[in-house]
Design a protein around this nucleic acid. Structure first.
Ligand SMILES: NC(=O)c1ccc[n+]([C@@H]2O[C@H](COP(=O)([O-])OP(=O)(O)OC[C@H]3O[C@@H](n4cnc5c(N)ncnc54)[C@H](O)[C@@H]3O)[C@@H](O)[C@H]2O)c1
Ligand SMILES: NC(=O)c1ccc[n+]([C@@H]2O[C@H](COP(=O)([O-])OP(=O)(O)OC[C@H]3O[C@@H](n4cnc5c(N)ncnc54)[C@H](O)[C@@H]3O)[C@@H](O)[C@H]2O)c1
Lengths: 208, 208
DNA sequence: TAATCTTTGTGATTTAGTTCACAGACTTTG
DNA sequence: CAAAGTCTGTGAACTAAATCACAAAGATTA
């Protein structure tokens, strides 16, 4: 990697390239050009090359990228050699959908715990995970080495839950509640605001 | 609105401002400055002013924005005076979570139909919606004036479903499947790639 | 009503990210 | 093996978006 700052968009796209070359490699397709890879991912050839360029030189002039080598290189860059433990807070509809999704494992993500405040839900199994009382969060987070917390509680409880996650030592939060969370700078939060994604579409529907 | 092109990020943030001033207005808080509004939404005061500036002048020097007036102005800008009909394709875990979410209504979004290809699911009620066979899509889309389609089918079926949505005359797609969809330029697609959101977080976990 | 304070609206500046474009590396063809 | 063709890697140019910074408008104070 050269010294330059890597845009977050680049990181996100590397995961797309990774999926694509994994597929290609398993199909025994040996090489691919940046143009073809861009074609398959709806990105430009220049974008593909520039993104990879932040981390080194992986291609061969005149032929392109060796799929299995690029796959290996991306695994190293992206920390794909290990699994990340995740906790879901809020075992409602959305939490249940996430807990039942087997696909995360393929991406090196493992949901290892689920929490709720509603005593009626405690002890129930969702997927392979038994729902625990939210007060166990701190202890379980440490025991199970949980790195990421997903907030799927109602908006009104989200800030409170975020604070509990911070207290439990979790530094990365994926937040599905439609509120702006207030957390220390050291904590990275990503918001997934589904209503807003849809609403934004409607604007373009009106103004096209 | 002045003639300049409005960034998509601005549109998305307007919905955040809208939520906030709705809340403030209902709390009988009469005015708010860009600095305070920014504080509450984790955005800068300059960002707030610039975003609103694309659409006109809504503030008063020295005191700020009148919450109920700004709310009304945003309603107009954002097309909040009407409801948008939405269809969910794929009545599995994620589709079920979306169908059971009552919150969309508050945002002017109404899920009016759900489709699946699995005959075991047809006829079942999820929330208030009965799951229909995917072959009914085209007719129902027209009858119910559906504008937006949400894809919650497995990755392998997503492209096929996207084509059916296009065929049914739907122009806006929210895609949850982790694949790049190939659709005509006139169709607007937004991807919500949950695995990738989480994976992107793990990169920063490794490289901090 | 004058002086002071607050806050907007917006050009100018800065920062970030994408696309261009081409020299040079490697491959293929005849 | 030389000529033509392909494709990478990367500065340079461009585009988009965020932040700055301040004049002007209005509010507040005394
Ligand atoms: N379901 C959707 O499709 C959808 C769509 C858009 C946004 N969201 C957002 O996602 C979040 C979850 O939605 P949902 O449909 O799963 O809601 P839900 O009501 O089905 O589930 C919420 C769960 O959180 C639990 N909970 C409440 N307070 C808690 C606390 N303090 N600690 C621990 N658990 C607590 C509840 O007991 C419940 O089980 C909400 O913020 C919602 O706005 C959901
Ligand atoms: N559940 C999650 O938390 C989660 C997380 C990340 C990504 N996703 C993605 O979201 C999508 C849906 O996930 P899910 O967990 O709800 O899956 P699921 O298997 O529970 O549901 C998929 C549904 O789609 C239906 N289906 C399949 N092919 C179809 C077709 N051609 N036409 C109509 N219906 C069809 C199936 O019958 C099934 O009911 C997948 O692409 C998945 O990768 C889900």
């Amino acid at each position: 990697m050269n010294g330059k700052k890597v845009p977050e968009g680049t990181i996100s796209r590397l995961f797309i390239y990774y999926r694509e070359v994994s597929e290609l490699s398993s199909l025994k397709i040996k090489t691919i050009s940046s143009a073809e890879l861009g074609e398959r991912t709806n990105l430009s050839d220049a974008q593909v090359r520039k993104d990879l360029g932040y981390f080194g030189q992986f291609g061969v002039s005149g032929s392109g990228y060796d799929t299995s080598e690029l796959k290996k290189a991306l695994e190293k860059i992206l920390g794909k050699d290990r699994t990340w433990n995740v906790a879901v807070i809020g075992a409602g509809h959305l939490g249940a959908a996430l807990l039942s999704y087997p696909g995360f494992k393929n991406y090196g993500l493992e949901i290892v715990a689920a929490f709720d405040s509603d005593s009626k839900r405690i002890g129930k199994k969702l997927g392979e995970i038994e729902v625990q009382l939210i007060s166990d969060l701190s202890k379980t987070a440490k025991d199970k080495k949980i790195h990421i917390g997903i907030i799927t509680v109602p908006a009104a409880s989200a800030q409170e839950v975020a604070e509990k996650l911070v207290e439990a030592g979790i530094e990365y939060i994926l937040n599905f509640a439609p509120v702006s969370l207030d957390v220390p700078d050291s904590i990275k939060v990503k918001d997934v605001d589904l209503s807003r994604e849809l609403e934004t579409l409607t604007y373009f529907l009106v103004n096209k």
